[in-house]
C-alpha cells in the first residue's frame, strides 16, 4: 500500500480566548490515500473546518503531527508552507473567495503566477482550465457578473491551476442551490476519478454521497467512517452515518 498523501497523528487544535481553551480538534488520527475522495461530515462545531485548515497547512496543530507527502508540516517554515499551498494543495471555499477586481481568467492566472508558472504557459493553462469547467465564454467577466455556481467553478479552476496533489474543499456547495450544488459535486467526482485526492468538508449528505469515504466528526473527535460504493446515494449515506452514531 502506498503511503498516504496526507496523514494526521493524534492531532489537536486548541484555541484560547479570554482564558478559555476551546478544543476544536481532539486527537484525530487520519490517513488519506492518493486519489481518494474523502468527505468530513459532522454537525457545526465538530472540528471539520479546523481539521481542514490543519491539513491545508494554513494552521498549525497545538499537538500531534500533520504529514503531507512524507513531510512533517510542523518542520516547514512559513515560506515552505506557503509554497505548499501554492503548488501542491488547492483550496475551494464555501464563499468562493475570488478576487473581485480580477476577471475570471485573471483569477485563474494569478494562482498559476503564485505557483511560479512562466507567462506563456500561464496564458495557455488558464484558458484550458476555464474550458475544463465550461467557462471559457466568461473569461473576461468579473466575478460579480457570475452566478454562484459559475463562481464556484472558477474557484475549482483556480484550485486545480497548479495541478495540486491534494484538493481541499470547505463546504463547496454551502452557498449554492440544489442544481448548482449537484453540478459542482459531479465536477469534484470527475476530478477525483481522474486520480486527484480530494478532501471535502460538508454537512450536506447529498454532497457527502459523492465521496469514496465519509468520515464522521463530533466534538472534535473522529467518530467513525464508512466507505461508499456505486453511484451517489444520499439515502445510503445517511443510513451509514446513522449507523456510525450521527
Amino acid at each position: 500500500m502506498n503511503p498516504p498523501i496526507i496523514e494526521t497523528k493524534d492531532v489537536w487544535k486548541i484555541y484560547g480566548s479570554n482564558g478559555v481553551a476551546v478544543e476544536a480538534v481532539r486527537g484525530i488520527d487520519l490517513a488519506v490515500q492518493a486519489g481518494e475522495f474523502c468527505a468530513l461530515v459532522g454537525p457545526s462545531g465538530s472540528g471539520k473546518s479546523s481539521l481542514l485548515h490543519l491539513l491545508g497547512a494554513m494552521d498549525t496543530p497545538s499537538r500531534g503531527e500533520v504529514i503531507f507527502a512524507g513531510r512533517l508540516l510542523a518542520q516547514l517554515s512559513d515560506a515552505q508552507r506557503t509554497d505548499l499551498r501554492a503548488r501542491e494543495i488547492g483550496f475551494i471555499f464555501q464563499t468562493f473567495n475570488l478576487l473581485p477586481m480580477l476577471t475570471v481568467w485573471e483569477n485563474v492566472e494569478i494562482a498559476l503566477r503564485l505557483g511560479g508558472v512562466p507567462l506563456a504557459e500561464r496564458k495557455q493553462r488558464a484558458s484550458a482550465l476555464l474550458a475544463q469547467v465550461g467557462l471559457q465564454e466568461r473569461a473576461r467577466h468579473l466575478p460579480s457578473s457570475l452566478s454562484g455556481g459559475e463562481r464556484q467553478r472558477v474557484a475549482i479552476a483556480r484550485a486545480l491551476a497548479n495541478r495540486p496533489r491534494l484538493l481541499l474543499a470547505d463546504e463547496p456547495t454551502g452557498n449554492l442551490d440544489s442544481q448548482n450544488g449537484t453540478d459542482i459535486m459531479k465536477m469534484l467526482r470527475v476530478i477525483a476519478e481522474g486520480g486527484q485526492t480530494v478532501v471535502m468538508v460538508t454537512h450536506d449528505f447529498r454532497a457527502a454521497s459523492y465521496a469514496d469515504r465519509v468520515i464522521l466528526l463530533r466534538d472534535g473527535r473522529l467518530r467513525g467512517e464508512t466507505h461508499l460504493e456505486g453511484a451517489p446515494d444520499m439515502q445510503q449515506t445517511v443510513e451509514r452515518l446513522f449507523q456510525l452514531g450521527l
Partner: peptide
Amino acid sequence: RREIGTLRAIGAHHWR
C-alpha cells in the same frame, strides 16, 4: 483584508 487573506491562502508569499 479578505482579498489579501485569500492570496495568502492560495500561496502568495510575504514578499508578494
